[in-house]
């Protein structure tokens, strides 16, 4: 079991309802972590219903959803913003 600082931006944050939280998880990679969260509550499932519109950064490095979480402290999830 590891603890991660999970940070949400833009409409991901709006759907989940908070900007950051500590998450305890046994997930091996980002996809697993997102699946775990989605099963916890509908607001997570709603936020993560379309992962093609979400990007992830692990400890401030842009990463893929299959990237391993071992040794990672912070998981940031953000969509592209489009307004100008």
């Amino acid at each position: 079991m590891a603890t991660y600082d999970v940070v949400y931006f833009a409409w991901v944050r709006e759907r989940i309802g908070l900007p950051r939280e500590e998450v305890e998880s046994t997930a091996q990679n980002v996809s697993d972590l997102i699946s775990e969260l989605s099963e916890r509550e509908p607001r997570y499932a709603a936020a993560f219903s379309d992962l093609s519109a979400i990007r992830v950064a692990l400890d401030q490095d842009l990463a893929q959803f299959d990237a391993p979480l071992e040794g990672v402290h912070e998981v940031a999830l953000f969509p592209p913003m489009t307004g100008g």
């Binding site: 931006f9 833009a10 592209p80 913003m81």
Partner: peptide, 10 residues
Amino acid sequence: SGAISGWEGH
């Protein structure tokens, strides 16, 4: 390139 939404931007 910059973008904004709500209270946020990149």
